[in-house]
Amino acid sequence: MSLYFVTALKAEAAALIDHYRLKARTPKGLFPVYESNTEAHACALVVSGIGKPAAAAATAYLHSLMGEPRDAVWVNVGIAGHHTREVGELVIANKVTDAATQRSWYPPQVLKHTLSTEALITVDRPETDYPKPVMYDMEAAGFYSIASKCSSMEFVQSCKIISDNQQSPADDINRDYVKRLLENNINILADFVKRLEQYATEWRRINAMPEAYDHFVQQWHFTVTQQNILKTQLRRWQVLLPDQVCDISAYKSCRNASEVLSSLGDMLDKRPVKFGM
């Protein structure tokens, strides 16, 4: 499973680095990246710096650095201002708007959860008047402009912790304060992320390549179209013959990929489709 975080500040990243036991990636590249990589779970975090262009660039950088993974979970974590919400509250963005272009993204809320959600406006300069009853930050729209192309939107979320409001202005924010805000919310945040990952894992399982696929493509040359047909046929096999392993040796007399495909297809066409019987 692949999980990627984008934060603006090192102070926002600290609790995540700790929680997910991430190590600084060396040598250093364009942006600081922290990662942990086991066979089952790849997790990485990039610190973008402040502002929309930096967030977009860092997201793209992490995506290419990690080998352009598909169906990964992407989470933008950071602080945001709001005119009335209590400082320290974790809020999931249900709409992200770029104030400069008025473009909006609507992260689908497929998880049933009890966390607060709110619209988020990404501004180019710090917003201290909070003119609308929404959250304000400086990165989420930059993150979305790229992350929404990297994965299905259900897996791309922005989680903000309220750092300032009318009573508690942004001037008081410092490094330790931001670190504490994140530390105080890390368990709730990790729980939300874990549930997103479960969805992504399930989706990957459904889409996993049938085991026999590699054996076939090593043995015969399949064109790209034939590779797609092979995938379809092997998936049919899994559904129609769930208890039977697809043994490549049964096709050893086939001279080329098209003979393999017609042999597989003919055999599967003869298998009865059963519904609940």
């Binding site: 709409k95 609507y106 497929v110 959600t117 619209a119 939107m153 259900e154 989706w203």
Partner: peptide
């Protein structure tokens, strides 16, 4: 129910990178 405002419904409904199967859960 949380209320989220949009200009036109297709901003929410039409974007390409959405997964019908996942959304069917909620």
């Amino acid at each position: 129910a949380r209320r989220i405002f949009c200009e036109r419904y297709n901003e929410v409904f039409n974007p390409a990178a959405q997964n019908f199967r996942l959304q069917k859960n909620n």
